[in-house]
């Protein structure tokens, strides 16, 4: 039988367990997503939900894969970056499983995992990656043995910005898909702040202006929510496309990968696809199941690191809530 890895994702909303073998064949993936009733993400509440459910999720993943826990040969978990209390749960469960089963354990950087699962599932070698989610907005590519960050947000992450605006407009979390739907019903563009600084971007001015439109006296008269949703998307995604294009022109990669929860957006997909074509680069979007936070990507990246470096010791498995992806060397790609 092939060697199997169980990967645990636990950085923010999503607690997820994936099981796959060392060749990258996937046997199961189970997600449990915390949905805030109102407001943002409270670490205490997320932690409580994950703590209540983790055993159930692990068991479902095992039964979907039709294996016993004793068949697992490696445990991988999300070690960085993320919310401390949430990262701790994943680390704690993983150490417990590793010791109980007497099998190796490896910690994985969540952002690197998003890229690695994309390389696997899209069969792509060396992409420029646009990683867009609730917590991250990063343009990255492999260079000098690391996943370097070429561009990133200077303030809010794109998903967080859209979700916050949606909440202000009275829509339920997650707002991204709802805003996409509303936007598709309009072509009335209202000018909004477009802020690109080199290869970085800033969304806070855009958010403030869009929110202001909701409260303005003209709301419901000159324009409606569809129009603001449309203008918000066009502006924000125009910015994302521009920084991606700038990075692409600078480092001249031949492939472009779009990933993270916001990659689900069809309008964003079409824009990034367009710039890829302009620069003769192949465009791939990570299949949605693996584009959002998931345990399979953690498992796969864990396998890569384990094969390159062997097991981590328990003291290596301390969580690193603030670790950047460009702080980590990538032995499996040199």
């Amino acid at each position: 039988m092939k060697k199997l890895c169980l990967g645990i994702e636990s950085t923010a909303h999503t607690f997820s367990v994936g099981i796959l073998d060392f060749d990258g064949n996937i046997y199961s993936l189970i997600n449990d997503i915390f949905i805030p009733e109102e407001g943002g993400l409270h670490p205490g509440l997320v932690r409580e939900q994950h703590l209540n459910n983790f055993m159930k999720i692990i068991n479902s993943a095992l039964s979907e894969a039709q294996i016993s826990v004793n068949n697992i040969n490696l445990i991988a978990f999300s070690q960085s970056p993320g919310l401390g209390p949430v990262l701790k749960i994943g680390a704690w469960i993983s150490r417990m499983l590793s010791q109980m089963l007497d099998i190796p354990i490896v910690g994985v950087n969540h952002c690197i995992a998003h890229i690695e699962i994309g390389r696997l599932k899209c069969n792509i070698e060396d992409p420029l990656t646009l990683y867009v989610s609730g917590g991250n907005t990063i343009v990255s590519a492999f260079e000098s043995n690391r996943y370097q960050i070429f561009g990133e947000t200077l303030d809010l992450a794109i998903g967080n910005m859209i979700d916050s605006f949606a909440r202000d407009a009275g829509l339920q979390h997650p707002g991204g898909p709802k805003i996409e739907k509303l936007a598709s019903k309009s072509d009335n563009y209202i000018p909004l702040p477009y802020v690109v600084k080199g290869m970085d971007l800033s969304f806070s001015g855009l958010y403030t202006a869009a929110k202001y439109l909701l409260q303005s006296g003209e709301y419901g008269k000159k324009y409606n929510l569809n129009d603001i949703a449309y203008s918000l998307q066009e502006t924000a995604f125009g910015m994302l496309s521009e920084v991606t294009e700038r990075a692409l022109a600078h480092i001249e990669k031949r492939e472009v990968l779009l990933t993270g929860g916001v990659a689900a957006n069809k309008r964003l997909q079409s824009m990034i696809k367009y710039i890829s074509k302009e620069h003769d680069a192949r465009f791939e979007v990570v299949p949605l199941k693996y584009a959002g936070d998931n345990g399979v990507m953690i498992g796969w990246t864990g396998i890569l690191r384990y094969q390159a470096e062997g097991s981590h010791t328990i003291s290596d498995t301390i969580i690193k809530p603030k670790e950047r992806m460009d702080q980590i060397t990538i032995p499996w790609r040199s």
Binding site: L41, P81, N136, I149, L156, N160, P321
Partner: peptide, 9 residues
């Protein structure tokens, strides 16, 4: 640029 903490969100 790192993961934005909830209190900063």
């Amino acid at each position: 640029g790192r993961y934005i903490k909830p209190e900063d969100r």
